[in-house]
Write a protein that binds this DNA or RNA. Structure first.
Lengths: 204, 204
DNA sequence: GTCTATATTCCGATAGAC
DNA sequence: GTCTATCGGAATATAGAC
């Protein structure tokens, strides 16, 4: 009568294996056999739990991306200064990505393959309200507290500096000959630094 | 006796079609049928010119990435000030990517799948000499002409601000509801702006 | 060189025993 | 629930006529 609790269920093992393989090879490159091997079972059992590869991918993707998207609207709509918002967003991004460093490339790829469908599913009604942030930026520009800048450039800068170093990690590591540990240390510093760069670049 | 010159040869048409399809769908997602259709021929002829899909991909990849990598070493080793180098690198990157906007994602993906093999082939002995740039950065920091910064962070910032907006174009466009034309206009401005951001962020 | 037709391989999915 | 064996379709690759 006592159910096993300590071991992961087969279903959980499949989901974990699938996430790993899909993220590593993408939807097109992943093989059901790879996933079965990774989970320590056989292909037939995959189809017993998840009818098709598409279904399985859907599951993985939904779950992964839903948990991944930061609650950027909460920050945007919060009642704090622009500079504080920038700081929050940067720290949130870098921290989040450090916990799932492969997600950005995964998401970029799927968006690239079918932008509309993907992005709608991804945000489901809570798309970042960029215009609100833009208004605040323009307001500060008019007040003369920061340098003139197109809000989109500022937002691009925030995302670029936070996300790109993870996308390009293999390349940057290859170029610099840094160890994993050293690279990670750099990313740890970056949590604080990114917003500093941004703020220095718009401060008068 | 007169060879046709004005029309592209079949081989050229295949290469062009293959580049388009591979860059759009990646190695795993691309189908030989797609390439044949794009080139206006049939599959058999593909194999007549290029024995296998792997061979064809190799060709495309070599050529595309070789032409794509900017001659960053020339800039690094040139005899100008650090700030001028930064400006050159940024302008070069943005200009280059504007001409081939899908290359960054393509390269990032292939690097991700097999980092070592890929990167070695990509640079073949002319890997960017980051350490030389790093020395110059550290020198300027010591002289007190710029704020203290880890050279890697500075280099990451340069690449991030130049490349990421192209990687994330579909997403950023979706969020901002910008037209293609407006987005392109923004990228045009960015050629100049990126180095300004960088320089503002390290200037004392 | 280019085509049609066909062989071969790979992979997602199912049948059926235990 | 889990396995082995196998089907069926899709994709790569080849044979052979023109």
């Amino acid at each position: 009568m006592v159910k096993k609790q300590k071991d992961a269920t087969t279903q959980q093992r499949i989901l974990e294996a699938a996430r790993k393989v899909f993220i590593e090879k993408g939807m097109a490159g992943a093989r059901m056999q790879d996933i079965a091997d990774e989970a320590g079972i056989n292909k037939a059992l995959l189809h017993y739990y998840f009818t098709s590869k598409d279904m399985l991918f859907e599951q993985i993707f939904q779950q992964a991306s839903a948990r991944f998207i930061p609650h950027i609207n909460e920050v945007i709509e919060s009642d704090v200064s622009l500079l504080e918002k920038i700081e929050h967003i940067c720290v949130n991004y870098v921290t989040l990505i450090m916990s799932k460093p492969f997600m950005p490339l995964f998401i970029l790829n799927e968006v690239h393959k079918q932008p509309e469908a993907f992005l709608q599913r991804m945000w489901g009604g809570q798309k970042p309200k960029l215009h609100k942030l833009a208004e605040q930026i323009e307001h500060e520009v008019k007040r003369g507290t920061i340098k003139p800048i197109h809000p989109m450039h500022l937002f691009m800068n925030i995302m670029s500096l936070s996300i790109f170093p993870f996308l390009a990690k293999p390349m940057l590591q290859y170029m610099s000959k840094m160890s994993d540990k050293a690279y990670w240390q750099l990313m740890e510093e970056r949590k604080e630094l990114v917003s500093k760069f941004i703020i220095d670049s718009i401060r008068k």
